[in-house]
Structure formats: C-alpha cells, structure tokens
Computed example of a mutant assay.
Amino acid sequence: MLEILGGWLFKDKFHSDYEFYVWQLSYAVTIMGVIWINHFILIPLFYDKRSYFLYGILLIGSIFLGAYLKAYPNWIGVYKMISFLIYTTGTGMAAFFLRRNMIIRRENDEKEKLQKDMELTYLKEQVNPHFLFNSLNSIYSLSRQQSSETPDVVMQLSELMRYQLESAKKDIVLLKEELEFLENYLLLEEKRLSKRCIIEFSIDGDVSDFAIAPMLLIPFVENAIKHGAQSTNEQSTIDISAQMKNSTFHFCVVNSKPTMATESKREGIGLENVRRRLNLLYPNSHVLKIDNTEKAYRVNLAIDLKAST
C-alpha cells in the first residue's frame, strides 16, 4: 500500500524520470478506469435498477480485473492494488452519491417551489371573480333602491378593483394598504346595508413597516357580511379589529348571526381558499381559529409578519 500511495518516495528505484511518470500514469489510468466503469456503467445499469447482488459481483470483478491487469504476475502487487482500488472506489462512490443527492434535493426543491407558485397563482385568481361578484351584488342592491349614492358607489368599486388588479401582480403588499382596502370595502357595504347593520373597524399599533400577502383578509370580511347582515333583515353587527404586537399581526372578525340562521355544511370557497393560502404562504407562522356559536361567528387570525424593507 505504501508503495502505491507514496510513489514519490520510491522515485529513485526507477532508471529514469520517464519510467517513473509512466508508472504513475498507469496507476492513475487504472484507478480512473475502475471509477469510470462504476459510476457510468455499473451504477446506472444495475445499482439504480436495484440489482444489488449483480452490481456487487460486477464491481468486485472490475476491481480484481484492474488490479490483475496492472500488477500481474506480481501477486503481492495484485493484492496491494486491489486494496487501493477498494479504497479509491469507495471514496469515489461516497462523493458520487453525495453529489447526486444534492442534485436530486435541488431538483425536488425547484419542483416544489414551482408547484407552490402555480397553486398560489390559481388561488389568487380565484379571489378575483369572487370579490367582483360580491361587489356587483352591492351595486345591484343600491340600484334597485334607486339610491342617489349609486354613482359614488360605482366609483368606489372602480378604485377597489384597481387596487385588486394591481395587488394581484405582487407577492406582498403593505399591510397599511391592505387595511385601507378593507376599510373602503366596508364603507361600500355600509351604504348598501343601510342602517340595519352596525360595522365597527379598528386598527391598533403601527402597521406601516409590515407587509402581507394581497387579498388575504377580504374573504373573512365577505364571509361576515354574507352570513351575517346579508342573510337577514334583523339588526346585525360586524366588529373587525386589526392589531400589531411586535411582529405578530392579530386580525379578528365577529359577526352576529340571525335568530333563525340555517346551518351551512360548508364554509364556502372563500374560506377554503384563504386556509390553503395561509398554509402555503405562512407555514408554521400563523394560527387561525374559527368559533361558530349560536349567536355569533368569530374568526381570530394571528400571523408572524416580517418588517418590510
């Protein structure tokens, strides 16, 4: 082994530098030949196809053949060469599998990211028609009442739609802008619902330095209106609060329920959508709790947001 690993220590045994370099080159060619056969023939054709027994036999055979061709008829040299080839082949295999695992992991990460981006795009696009449908219902109700505020509401809706279309192109928006969007939407709904619904909206804490995924909060507000004030002619209430504590954003929506409310088996597309988006965008950094009691429907959302740059 020492004769092979420390060939430079025995340079004086050779008659010329030429013979020494040829000797060194022959060992390098033998070693690289066995490694090449293992990596590009044996592993793809046998190991990767789970023919482990056949792979082992062929690998041992290639090591023995390489040692035999290099050192025969010196059997001591053959044994030394076999030991050296086992060492170099094992080291090469470790490097090969480490590199391949890194490539596979990177490819899987890229596929997962692509899948996540595609799913988020699909979920975000679902919000567009859902929000537009609810907004057009508001205008339709006002037009039937022949309200003088209908033109102003149409202008409000156009501003809301402009924000929605612009935010749909972004991954995140300023939290302050998102809350202003909610406030304008509530003003529009307040006009439609007239005096039969009392809407309270409060913001506590400094939200100017934080960002959030666009159109993430609106489904909770729409759900409160749809299953609260919109489903009854009774007096109803909607209480919405947004609070920032350190880097955690707390969002709470509470709506009263009609006395003769019909239990729904589904929460609707909007809440299913937002649940999925939260899991994709804020994994392990959000808590969503929904309490559906006899008199009220409460949503509590907490998200750990990072300060925007």
Rank of each mutant, 00 (worst) to 15 (best):
E3G: 10
K11G: 06
S16L: 09
V22W: 04
W23D: 01
V29A: 14
V29R: 05
I35F: 02
W36Y: 13
I37R: 02
N38H: 06
N38W: 00
I43A: 05
R50P: 00
K70F: 02
N74V: 09
I76A: 07
I82M: 03
L85E: 00
Y87F: 11
G90V: 11
G92M: 10
A95H: 05
I104Q: 11
D109E: 15
K111Y: 09
L114T: 08
D117S: 02
E125H: 13
N128I: 11
N128G: 05
L132V: 14
N137V: 06
S147R: 04
L160R: 00
Y163M: 04
V173G: 08
E178I: 01
E178T: 03
F181D: 04
L182G: 03
N184R: 05
L186C: 09
L188K: 04
F201D: 03
S202D: 09
D209N: 15
Q230V: 01
A242C: 13
Q243W: 00
M244P: 00
S256A: 12
S256H: 07
A261M: 02
R266V: 06
G268L: 04
V274K: 02
P283K: 08
P283R: 12
H286D: 10
E294R: 05
K295A: 10
R298W: 06
V299H: 08
A307S: 14
